[in-house]
Simulated scan of single mutants.
Amino acid sequence: MSPAAGAATLATRRSSRFVTWVRAWRAGLVSYDEIADEIAGDEEHLVADAPGAWTDLPLRDALSCFSKLAPDEIRLVLPAPGDPRGLPGPGEFAGAALLAGEAVVARGLGVIPEVRTHTSGSGVTFETVLWRVHPLPNDLPNGNGYADPGPAEAEAELSSALAEATAALTRLDVAHWRPELAGALAALRRPDAGMDLPPGFDPRARRLFARASVLDQVLALAEHVAPGGAVNGYEAQQRDAALRPLTAACRQALVAACNAPLRP
Rank of each mutant, 00 (worst) to 15 (best):
A220S: 14
D37R: 13
N259D: 08
R189Y: 00
A154E: 01
A70D: 15
L181N: 06
A156V: 08
T247E: 08
R263D: 10
S2R: 10
D72N: 01
V174Y: 10
F126M: 07
A36T: 07
A249D: 11
N142F: 13
H134E: 04
K68H: 08
H45C: 15
A4C: 08
A5M: 15
R206S: 09
A220L: 13
G233Y: 01
P88W: 05
E73L: 01
G41D: 04
D196C: 03
L136Y: 07
G52N: 12
V214M: 11
E127S: 15
P71I: 06
P227H: 06
D192C: 11
L208K: 00
H118V: 02
G233N: 09
L221T: 13
A236L: 10
G194L: 02
A230N: 11
D33S: 12
P51E: 00
P58D: 03
H134G: 04
S159W: 05
S64C: 09
S122M: 12
L63T: 00
P199Q: 07
P264W: 00
L109R: 10
I74E: 04
S15M: 12
A210V: 01
C65D: 09
T9S: 13
P79A: 11
S67M: 06
G150L: 09
G41P: 07
N259V: 03
P88V: 06
D72R: 03
A94E: 04
A147F: 04
W25D: 12
A242K: 04
R85T: 08
P137H: 02
P191I: 01
A40T: 03
L46T: 08
R211G: 09
Q237V: 09
A106Q: 06
A163W: 07
L57I: 08
E43Y: 09
D56V: 14
G121I: 15
S159V: 13
